[in-house]
């Protein structure tokens, strides 16, 4: 796990990145909201940095790589070629997200999901799925508490056979871990890995303890 939000898979020499949401800023221009048009550029910069660092052979885009179906078309040429350049020597696997079903650069195809070394990769977690699964979509973030101080950061989530990665895009925001979307993870088996500025920080006690006790309270109340 890398503090950029990327996941490196050494045995596969593979890099996983999710929810890049290219051209998110410009998607709002149509509506008259002129967000700064630099998010694509900055996300690309991040991508170049991690690829240079890990030197993977293969890269998995775990869905929502483009913010909408016309994002690729809208992307300024200079950024188009930057994206193609950076993945040029790599095997690229595009997994389809809910934002980008179609609209990929011409010579690529996307898949709904893929199994690699017994692990299923897909954009949105499937609750009923049994077996190891890596997904994205929710942009998980959480609060870490320490001595009365609190910090909110994006995080990886690991629980049992499920693994959720944070968003890699720079203008994407995060969904709080306490949200019901993460209900399945609100138990003591869950580990959160927060993105620091320079490294990953692991936390489990803070969350799981509280959740466990509050869940316990509720159960007791119901029984009583």
């Amino acid at each position: 796990m890398h503090p950029s939000g990327a996941l490196y898979w050494p045995s596969q020499l593979s890099l996983l990145v999710a929810d890049l949401h290219f051209e998110k800023g410009s998607s709002y221009h149509k509506t008259g909201q002129f967000l700064p048009p630099y998010d694509t550029h900055q996300t690309l910069e991040k991508l170049e940095t991690v690829i240079k660092y890990f030197k993977p052979r293969r890269i998995f885009f775990l869905g929502d790589t483009f913010h909408d179906m016309s994002a690729w078309k809208r992307m300024p040429d200079v950024n188009k070629s930057r994206l193609l350049d950076v993945v040029e020597d790599l095997e690229v696997v595009w997994i389809e997200g809910n934002h980008d079903q179609g609209g990929l650069p011409d010579r690529f195809k996307s898949v709904k999901n893929i199994e690699v070394d017994g692990i299923t990769l897909r954009h949105i977690m499937q609750r009923s799925f049994i077996g190891p699964e890596i997904s994205a979509h929710f942009h998980p973030a959480g609060v870490i508490k320490f001595r009365g101080m609190r910090i909110r950061r994006p995080c990886f989530i690991k629980s049992g056979q499920k693994f959720v990665v944070p968003s890699f895009g720079v203008l994407t925001g995060g969904l709080d871990f306490s949200d019901d979307a993460f209900e399945d993870f609100h138990n003591c088996k869950t580990h959160l890995f927060f993105l620091g500025e320079r490294k990953i920080f692991r936390s489990s006690a803070g969350y799981s303890k509280n959740i466990k006790s509050s869940r316990g309270d509720r159960n007791n109340r119901q029984r009583g």
């Binding site: 998110k24 800023g25 709002y28 967000l35 700064p36 630099y38 998010d39 550029h41 900055q42 929710f138 942009h139 720079v170 203008l171 994407t172 925001g173 995060g174 969904l175 949200d179 979307a181």
Partner: peptide, 19 residues
């Protein structure tokens, strides 16, 4: 909730960096 929107904090960071 589910719809994760852009936050003005992120816009601020991008703007500060590029302009």
């Amino acid at each position: 909730g589910r719809q994760v929107l852009f936050s003005s904090d992120l816009i601020y960071d991008v703007l500060r960096r590029y302009e």
